[in-house]
Design a protein around this nucleic acid. Structure first.
Length: 404
RNA sequence: GUGGCUGUGAUGUAGCUUGGUAGCAUAGGGGACUGUGGAUCUCCUCGGCCGUGUUCAAAUCACGGCAGCCACC
């Protein structure tokens, strides 16, 4: 068993936040750290040069997508992910567990990671989900995940062993065990059954490992306190290098905070914790405060592609959507300010909102690229600033400034 | 000048025969999106060339204007 070197440099005195350093094969990562998602071996619209320039430390690629296209063996033959994509730094690969969810239950429940409709949610969400039973691309049984390729409908079986083998072929620094995410609509009974299976898969994943790649287990259990705690104890007891926190985090932000509050005291201090698929600005603060070290999230790049620009509260803005605005908004047509007047990124040094507004409305690809660059810069540096604040023991102060 | 055809939102159109909810697409304006989605979903704004008549009721039928296009002189 490999031991992933993780050193905690500083623990906050006022909360669970900590600053540390993880040493991966391809370099160190200073935590807390925001890890952009490079599903198909690229952060959409950005080059590796961009990412280095931005200050990105680590990337997350996806086993399911790369297994189907171009295939893990081809990537292995081409020297592994780093060589293949020209990225010198550490890489983690997601196991395919999330795709088991998003192509399975996610479709059946008309739900994504975040719940789209709960009448009692605050504020109440407007539209009930469209349930589309019978169109699932993934189903689960004890053996593993039965996928249909989104490309050609061919059947694939992804077992925990196959996932690990594939991730070894891809050659990431850090791999995740195969897990199943439940939907916010999943019952207690299903969530429990699924969690127990995920635990067995975790054991099988760990046992299947042949390389010295680092491996993270993943805590499931949905929004249920006893399940989350049980899962946390179980995953913490495995010989893994770190802890992933996955699955449905409930119906609201409050629920997510509760989940983190339940499990954090049960986790070993000396292993890094990765909160899967989170987050947005508020979530990053709340999670770092509760002791999360690593995040991956598509929000920066996906939002960029739908025209949302992240910006700092220092830059001013409306009460609603405090940390982002939509560049397509007509009010930017003649706005000669940079996207975020407080942002030192390349895009903000050069281009005006008016220009980016035009590019976006004209559906020019450059708009998506420049907005992605800015948003990734914003998120990466927001978390880097949090790290500095932890080191200076000013994290809660910083949080209060951002989230009064 | 004569004859024919056509006038529906910002744009392109459907409905007209057989009168009864003005439909669709694009554009515009909001909103959603958390282990990817240049996707998708969602809400909203704006309309029958003008006038008169018939009728319980007119985008629809009739008549008169006006405008555009085409053909002929």
């Amino acid at each position: 068993m490999s031991v992933l070197p993780f050193h905690i440099t500083k623990k906050s005195e006022t909360c669970r936040a900590r600053a540390g350093v993880v040493h991966f094969v391809h370099g160190k990562v200073e935590t807390p750290c925001f890890v952009p998602v490079a599903t198909k071996a690229t952060v959409k619209t950005l080059t590796c040069e961009d990412l280095l320039e931005i200050g990105v430390e680590m990337l997350m690629c996806n086993t399911y997508h790369l297994m189907l296209k171009p295939g893990s063996q081809r990537i292995a033959a081409l020297g592994g992910l780093n060589t293949f994509m020209g990225w010198p730094g550490p890489v983690m690969t997601d196991s395919g567990g999330f795709q088991a969810f998003s192509l399975g239950l996610g479709i059946e429940h008309g739900s994504k990671k975040k719940c789209l409709y709960f009448p009692d949610a605050s504020p109440p969400l407007q539209h009930p989900p469209k349930r589309r039973s019978g169109q699932m691309f993934a189903t689960m049984d004890e053996e593993g995940v039965h996928f249909r390729s989104v490309y050609d409908m061919k059947k694939h079986l992804l077992t925990p062993e196959k996932s690990i083998q594939t991730q070894e072929e891809l050659g990431a620094d850090l791999v995740f065990v195969l897990d199943e995410c439940t939907s916010p609509f999943s019952s207690y009974e299903y969530t429990k059954e699924s969690m127990e299976r995920t635990h067995r898969w975790a054991q099988r994943s760990v046992a299947a490992r042949k390389s010295n790649q680092a491996i993270f287990g993943i805590i499931q259990g949905g929004e249920f306190e006893d399940l989350r705690k049980e899962s946390a104890r179980f995953i913490a007891s495995l010989p893994v290098d770190g802890i992933g926190i996955g699955g449905s985090l409930g119906k609201s932000k409050k629920d997510m905070h509760a989940v983190l509050d339940w499990i954090m005291p049960l986790l070993p201090e000396n292993k890094p914790r990765h909160l899967l698929g989170i987050g947005v600005v508020e979530d990053l603060f709340e999670s770092v405060e509760r002791g999360v070290d690593l995040f991956d999230c598509v929000s920066a790049t996906r939002n960029a592609r739908s025209g949302y620009v992240y910006y700092s509260s220092k830059a001013g803005g409306t009460q609603k959507n405090k940390y982002r605005f939509k560049i397509a908004h007509a009010s930017f047509a003649l706005d000669t300010q940079p996207l975020d007047p407080h942002c030192p990124c390349k895009v903000c040094q050069k281009y005006t909102r008016a220009y980016l507004h035009h590019l976006f409305k004209a559906e020019e690809l450059t708009a998506l690229r420049l907005l992605s660059y800015h948003n990734v810069y914003f998120m990466v540096h927001l978390v880097k600033d949090m790290r500095k604040a932890i080191l200076d023991d000013k994290f809660m102060e910083m949080k209060k400034k951002w989230m009064p």
